[in-house]
């Protein structure tokens, strides 16, 4: 079921078209990585979905409500984390989470337990009574996520959540995001640092100059972009015998041999993969490893950039 459905949504700032008639659908449980270079329109698009910026034209439904008419309802059920933010420095971490829980309508009787739960999930329980101004940037970023978690939104909109963080803080943040993804939360996360998104995005949308150039499930996009699967096969013994067998298999081309590992490109899907494996085994090859090599989002983006930018 679609939690976000946008049709030809557009934002103009004077003569500049920041988001150009974007149509996008995000289903419940999807983790969508919004990738693109700086100035592609990612932040404006997220701000529109977060009800911070009013679209110039187009329609969008979030959590079943109209973006422009029911913005208060949407705000209650969507958690938006802006790219540059801070939190109330005059409050302690516990007070800050409590304030957001109250503002987002968490029942009063459940607030204390919810705050504790979130503190534990962002691993900052021991900082409950510390003032926000005494927390490090990485901690504040985690509190930002915690602030969204406290009201358990149906959709998370995260704009460059790891920008400005050191590697340790990035790993901590990534762990929280993986946890969200594993819990089946719907997340739209923008970044131009693609390694940040690798590993937990189920879908990607690639934005450039205000438009979505390509979007869909990661595997689907990978096939669309590369047109083939990359397979790595490790064998026991002489790889040349395996290479000869592989060359006889339709739509397969051997792209490289490195000691006992053979890199292969092939057209097709999982069934063709299974058949190729069987073909090798029946040909007497002792296959040690047979795996599709997942193209990194970075490679994908560069490939798309090369084609489209």
């Amino acid at each position: 079921m679609a939690i976000l459905e946008a049709q030809e949504i557009r934002k103009e700032f004077g003569p500049l078209v920041a988001v150009n008639d974007v149509s996008l659908s995000v289903d419940e449980g999807d983790v969508l990585g919004l990738i693109g270079p700086n100035g592609a329109g990612k932040t404006t698009l997220l701000k529109m979905f977060g009800t911070l910026v009013r679209p110039t034209a187009g329609r969008a439904q979030l959590v079943g409500r109209d973006l422009t008419k029911d913005y208060l309802h949407i705000r209650k059920h969507v958690g938006f984390l802006p790219d540059f933010f801070n939190l109330y420095s005059d409050l302690t971490l516990g007070e800050c989470l409590r304030f957001f829980a109250e503002a987002y309508g968490v029942p009063r009787s459940a607030i204390a337990a919810r705050v504790e739960e979130v503190l534990s999930s962002i691993e900052l329980t021991d900082k409950r009574d510390s003032f926000i101004r005494h927390l490090s940037r990485g901690m504040v970023q985690r509190v930002g996520l915690g602030m969204l978690l406290v009201h358990d939104p149906q959709l998370f909109l995260l704009d460059e959540p790891a920008s400005g963080l050191d590697p340790k803080a990035r790993i901590q943040l990534r762990n929280i995001l993986r946890k969200l993804s594993a819990e089946g939360k719907t997340v739209i996360i923008s970044s131009h640092i693609l390694t940040e998104l690798s590993g937990f995005c189920s879908h990607v949308a690639i934005m450039n100059r205000g438009r979505i150039e390509l979007s869909g499930a990661v595997d689907e996009i990978r096939r669309k972009v590369t047109g083939s699967m990359q397979v790595e096969i490790s064998v026991l013994g002489d790889p040349e015998q395996a290479v000869a067998l592989l060359r006889r298999f339709p739509d397969v081309s051997v792209v490289g041999v490195d000691r006992a590992t053979i890199s292969v490109e092939m057209v097709g899907g999982p069934q063709e993969l299974a058949r190729l494996n069987a073909h090798l085994v029946h040909g007497g090859i002792e296959v040690v490893r047979f795996a599709e090599r997942k193209t990194d989002l970075e490679d994908l983006f560069m490939k798309i950039s090369g084609d489209a930018l």
């Binding site: 009800t51 208060l72 705000r75 209650k76 933010f85 939190l87 503002a103 309508g105």
Partner: peptide, 14 residues
Amino acid sequence: ANKTYDFFRLLPLS
């Protein structure tokens, strides 16, 4: 000044 203005704007309050 505290960079909390976006959160203020986003509060689901009338």
